[in-house]
Simulated assay, not measured.
Amino acid sequence: MKVVGISGSRIGSKTRTAMAETMRVLEESYPNAEATTIDLASVDLAWSDGRHFLDYEGDTQHVTRAIMDADVLIIGTPIFQASIPGSLKNVFDLLPERALENKTVSIVVTAGSPKHYLIAEQQLRPILTYMKANVSQNFVFIEEKDFHQKEIVNDDVHFRLQNLVEDTMLLAETYQEMLQKKDDLYDF
């Protein structure tokens, strides 16, 4: 199963730290998964201008192709000004409308305030649903106080990340089995 983790910001360290830990847990718990991490701070993405995703070149084509080829996405996002960052929104804008169809997606959120807890529900989940993703019901919300010197110091956060990875992979495996049963109904 192909899993792509996306660290959805070009600045800051908390989302990058959270995604590194999430992907570490994934690789440790599911060594057969083909895991890749895309850090938006380390790629040079073009701004979406309406072209087909295959018409872009360089990092933009690499990122969009990796997402399109994935079975599972784990999206990490900070909350800036009570919203997801424009760099992450741009990734969605680069993709076709049904790009996330038959993909299982889960969310890791980092924020400076507990007041931003529902941003993932109000802004990110509708985008993912519109793009036909099979979105995990649970997400992990990590506050500023849970970090110290670019490390997660709250044991509960580690536990929640472990559960998120397990729930995501179980959902993905179950969903793939359901799709296979549906495909098996046809003779061609």
Results as ranks from 00 to 15, higher is better:
1 M>S: 11
6 I>G: 01
7 S>L: 02
10 R>P: 04
11 I>P: 05
13 S>Q: 14
14 K>E: 05
14 K>R: 10
15 T>I: 07
19 M>R: 02
19 M>C: 06
20 A>Q: 09
21 E>V: 09
21 E>R: 09
26 L>F: 08
26 L>V: 00
27 E>D: 01
28 E>Q: 10
30 Y>C: 01
31 P>T: 01
33 A>D: 05
34 E>V: 06
35 A>L: 00
36 T>G: 02
37 T>E: 13
37 T>M: 15
39 D>G: 06
44 D>L: 14
46 A>W: 08
46 A>H: 09
47 W>Q: 07
49 D>Q: 13
51 R>Q: 04
53 F>D: 09
55 D>F: 05
56 Y>W: 13
59 D>L: 12
59 D>H: 11
59 D>G: 10
61 Q>S: 15
64 T>A: 14
68 M>V: 07
68 M>G: 09
70 A>Q: 07
70 A>L: 07
71 D>F: 03
73 L>P: 05
74 I>T: 06
75 I>N: 04
78 P>Y: 09
79 I>V: 14
80 F>N: 12
83 S>K: 09
84 I>M: 11
86 G>H: 14
91 V>L: 07
92 F>M: 12
94 L>I: 11
96 P>L: 06
96 P>W: 03
98 R>F: 14
99 A>Q: 02
104 T>K: 10
106 S>P: 02
113 S>I: 06
118 L>E: 14
122 Q>T: 13
122 Q>S: 12
122 Q>V: 11
127 I>C: 03
128 L>S: 01
128 L>A: 01
129 T>R: 10
132 K>H: 09
132 K>A: 06
133 A>I: 07
133 A>F: 07
133 A>M: 08
135 V>P: 00
135 V>M: 02
141 F>Q: 04
143 E>W: 08
151 E>T: 10
152 I>T: 02
155 D>S: 12
155 D>W: 03
158 H>Y: 07
158 H>P: 02
160 R>Y: 13
161 L>A: 00
161 L>T: 00
163 N>D: 14
164 L>K: 08
165 V>L: 01
166 E>D: 13
166 E>F: 14
172 A>I: 02
173 E>Q: 13
174 T>P: 04
178 M>R: 15
178 M>D: 15
182 K>Q: 13
184 D>L: 12
185 L>E: 09
186 Y>D: 12
186 Y>N: 11
187 D>I: 15
187 D>Q: 14
188 F>I: 15
188 F>Q: 15
